[in-house]
Simulated assay, not measured.
Amino acid sequence: MRDLVAGMRYLGRGMRWTAQHGRWWGFGLIPALVALVLYAGALIGLALWSGDLAAWATPFADGWGSPWQGLLRGLFVALLLAGGLVLSVLTFTAVTLLIGDPFYESLSEQVERSEGHCPPGPDRPLWREIGIAVREMIPVLLRAAGFGVLFFLLGFLPVVGQTVVPAVGFCVSGFFLAVELTTVAMQRREVPVRERLRLLRGRLGLAVGFGTPLVLLFLIPFVAVLLMPGAVAGATLLVRDLVPAGPGAGPDAGPAVADGDESEGRAVPAAW
């Protein structure tokens, strides 16, 4: 429970930091707005062509009479649009971080400087940084998609599928969102993706407490765009305590201390 509260505090600290640095908040909005335009265009295109896609996918219903053909293809269109919306929610953050890699890298660095020290990042060209980000994003998205399919199937269970499963699903989504948002600061410390997953699993409450409120807020239209800069700032502050920085520091260089937990810092477990 303490880690859950600490995760929420990091989120609040990130939002407060961007509120106090309005120029950087506006700077961080740019990639989120670009991603929003791209997603809106894709969803509008999907809606416009959904009828044709339904007819193409159900040729066996061409000879059906009314109302069965309309009901079948109407159901197909509804499922197609619902799937597009769910996919948009699941991938928006990852795509925004990919588009805005140089923006969020600068924002994250500024957050670290304001806290007193910014560890030097690896000296790599931008194209290579983006390539690494894409390569590391894929396993995280595949894991998230696997859990999504599992929770979709469990949703058909009576009672539990409509109560417990959605609650657990939001927490799992919050964990993976925390993984995505901490990527910028983790990459600066050259922490590989497997190690990031291990670190955040070792402090599961911290990751869930940080990411789950964002998952719920991101369900509100346009809120994801407004909160992305603060989410990146909060994730940077979280990483500063989870992965100590400095000469000779690394993922296991010292105790991982959560915000508000300084009096009893706990070492990150060596394994999941």
Rank of each mutant, 00 (worst) to 15 (best):
A40T: 14
V191R: 05
Q162D: 09
F60W: 14
P125T: 06
G209V: 06
G74S: 01
M186D: 05
I44H: 07
P247V: 12
R203F: 15
F218L: 05
G202Q: 08
L216T: 05
S173W: 14
G254D: 10
D52L: 13
W272N: 02
V86Q: 12
V172E: 03
R23G: 12
L38Y: 02
R201I: 07
V165M: 11
L214C: 03
A19D: 05
L177M: 10
L53V: 14
L29M: 09
P31S: 03
H117P: 00
G202C: 06
A42F: 15
G131E: 09
A185I: 04
P247C: 09
L157F: 15
D241L: 07
A231M: 01
V208H: 01
G51W: 01
M228E: 02
E136G: 02
L197S: 01
V168P: 09
L4H: 13
H117N: 05
L199H: 01
A271D: 15
S88H: 11
D261H: 15
L157H: 11
W17C: 00
V149M: 02
G209Q: 04
W56D: 03
L150H: 10
Q20T: 07
G116M: 04
F222T: 09
S263F: 11
C118Q: 11
V208D: 08
L153E: 00
